[in-house]
Nucleic acid binder design. Structure first.
Lengths: 176, 176
DNA sequence: GCCTATAATTTCGACATCGAAATTTTCGAC
DNA sequence: GTCGAAAATTTCGATGTCGAAATTATAGGC
């Protein structure tokens, strides 16, 4: 029976240091939150590398993917996009400026409410987004290679609990 | 027997959208990675709010906490700090400039290797760091209120597996 | 029908980060 | 001993983000 001795990760080393310096503290919350934070950064790094092949930055992918999965005709308002990407409206203006210049998205004034700006995928943008999301999912699959299907389900379930506690109910980071 | 129907979070909605638009894709990796990414951002937001009471930004806390838990005499080189915080050396120079101005840390040239810069906590900095870490852990405790102790352990264990897969072996984000 | 309150987006200024180049120091080859 | 390569930090220029102010458009009260 392979009673496996789990290896230590960076967070184990951190909590060990705290125990030495401040043994009065309960560091158990950071065993979870520290790992979420750390994993997020490392995963993001891999995602970025993966997209580099296509000359696309993660923040560009966020917008393209959000528009793609919104379904035909792939149009959302600036506000919807900014809350979906969890960035400020200012940041979104920036992103759209950039993607519009690249010819991947288009801006148009909403005919019904002219204070709204509708952003849509161009044909080029839609085709690129379709290719990107496939490549992206393949990359993510590799990043989780260390976990079985069951473990992924467990992990996803526990994280859902955390997210619901935190009041997750708005947009998204483009399926990352 | 409360057979609870788990609520949907933002990521459930995203994967549902993908199924509608691209039913050929296996979106299971993003059920995990999307949640890690999303949870990280929401947790970070709460941590930031929690530190605001003390007029400290998360990146400032990172440095102070890293120095504190390194143990007496609370001295590290710039390089050690930058890899611990997972930021570039340029970013670290910036952080230290700032904290030095606030009187929380001090710079000194390493007598043994003069190309190294040693950064240490001042007395004020050490006292503040001790208070901050207590407050910080209390805040994190609240953020995980939705999970039992067992669930936290499970979650931490699964995340450790992910981190080891990703090759986690260096510094840290200050125990976040 | 005006006029003000509200909504949505953009502009502006500040800021933390990064990568690359520059600077300073160390160390080894010769 | 001197010179050049390597190491550690800082400087520099560019970038993406944020919060707040400005801009433009809608809607309701009177």
């Amino acid at each position: 029976m392979t009673e496996q001795q789990p290896q230590h990760d960076g967070v184990d080393r951190i909590t060990a240091q705290w125990r030495a310096v401040r043994p009065d503290l309960d560091t158990s919350p950071m065993a979870v939150i520290g790992r979420i934070s750390r994993a997020s950064r490392l995963l993001e790094r891999g995602i970025k590398e993966n997209l580099t092949v296509h000359g696309i930055e993660p923040w560009e992918f966020d917008v393209l993917a959000t528009l793609l999965r919104s379904g035909a005709p792939h149009v959302l308002t600036a506000g919807e996009l900014s809350s979906a990407a969890m960035v400020s409206s200012a940041a979104l203006t920036n992103r759209i400026d950039h993607l519009e210049q690249k010819g991947l998205v288009e801006r148009a004034v909403d005919p019904a409410h002219r204070r709204r700006v509708l952003i849509s995928l161009t044909d080029t943008g839609r085709e690129l987004a379709n290719r990107l999301v496939e490549h992206h999912l393949t990359g993510e699959e590799h990043q989780l290679a260390g976990l079985t299907a069951d473990e992924r389900d467990q992990l996803a379930g526990l994280l859902r609990r955390v997210l619901l506690t935190l009041g997750d109910h708005t947009g998204d980071p483009a399926g990352r």
